[in-house]
Design a protein around this nucleic acid. Structure first.
Lengths: 203, 203
DNA sequence: CGCACACAGTGCGCGTCCCGCAATATCGGA
DNA sequence: TCCGATATTGCGGGACGCGCACTGTGTGCG
């Protein structure tokens, strides 16, 4: 959760965590959307070079392991927004932050498609996505000067943004699509982001 | 005029389905948010008056059984919107439809709180919520005359609406809250619903 | 320089779950 | 009333999640 780990020990831990997660995703992709049940824990552990028991020390379900990467990335949404210049309007700041976050490494089409077309994985992914709304909402609150405890605006906008990202991802994966993910993302976000913070301190 | 299966057999099936689901939710509430693991399949089945194997014929996981009610309700979002008068503006129609859908039987606080404070259940609930976005998006598309295959507007708005409902639910459950669910719901929806369909047939 | 400690990795075993298969009970319709 | 459809159930296997205890290695202190 903290990246200050200069600790070499923690580094190895993180490395094996990523190794397991990566192996899980890779095997899942190999089996295709309908073969999740065929991805045995034993296979994941072997592919990652650890024992099945160790795998279980890091993740308590295949879904969790497979979606770990997206979870980590989603967690960065809040700080991505905070990194935008302070004067920037909310809508532009959010769009810029999200586009940057989700296009720096162009998302893996196969992985995304795998997750979005597998109910069990989709549930896990949605959970992590929702978890990321909290930090994002706080960042929005900080930028707009709204008290998140008093007004729903930050949380609702954060949820809407997360939803727009999901929809954009879905569209991007559609067979006949030719547009870039960034373009779709901007379009989707522009639908919900005109939302303006409540005027004045009323209500 | 009736979508109720004239088939009496299907009725019984639906009845036992609800019996199992209801029993599952009740037991889960009894155990509290941290005792989901203590709700054994055997207990649910016994409480519902069926065998464990039958329980498994209806649901493939505890989470699914517990969240079945919310799933069914979420599925009605689309038709709730279609039931609104045709001339009504999109924002008012959606707000009216959603408020009606989620306040006719006032939601069960304990059940909602149970689900939202249990990660495993939350994932399942989010999945069902997301599933409901499809029909809702189609209804929005039909009302606005937008082709959902060409424009993201319907899907994005549907996702935003679902997000707003979630946020409203969360706020409603907060300890110090005194407002009615309907009021919170209207407020949350009003943040994202100013969104207007794309002008003209461009893009 | 070495030692004791903390902690990641591992093996084992138990309890539970999910589900395919096949037999049985039950109910609706002709 | 009887037949066919299907809902329910029992059984058994494969897999999983996790607590517990042990081992081996890197860490920091004396």
């Amino acid at each position: 959760m903290n990246d200050d780990a200069v600790d070499l020990r923690a580094r190895n831990k993180q490395a094996t965590r990523e190794a397991i997660s990566h192996a899980a995703l890779r095997l899942a992709i190999e089996q295709g959307p309908h073969g999740l049940a065929l991805v045995r824990v034993h296979d994941i552990a072997t592919a990652a070079g650890v024992s099945p028991r160790t795998y279980n020390n890091y993740f308590s379900s295949r879904e969790e392991a497979i979606c770990a990467f997206h979870a980590d990335q989603a967690r960065r949404a809040g700080q991505a927004l905070r990194a935008r210049p302070a004067g920037e309007p909310l809508d532009q700041a959010v769009i810029a932050a999200v586009v940057e976050l989700y296009t720096d490494p162009e998302p893996d089409r196969a992985g995304l498609r795998m997750i979005m077309s597998t109910p069990a994985l989709e549930g896990e992914a949605l959970k992590t996505f929702t978890m990321a709304e909290g930090p994002l909402a706080e960042a929005i609150a900080a930028r707009t000067g709204v008290d998140p405890g008093r007004d729903l605006f930050p949380a609702v906008v954060a949820a809407a943004v997360a939803g727009a990202i999901r929809v954009a991802g879905r569209r991007w994966l559609e067979p006949g699509n030719t547009e870039s993910f960034a373009a779709i993302l901007r379009h989707a976000l522009s639908v919900v982001l005109p939302a303006a913070p409540p005027e004045g301190p009323q209500r």
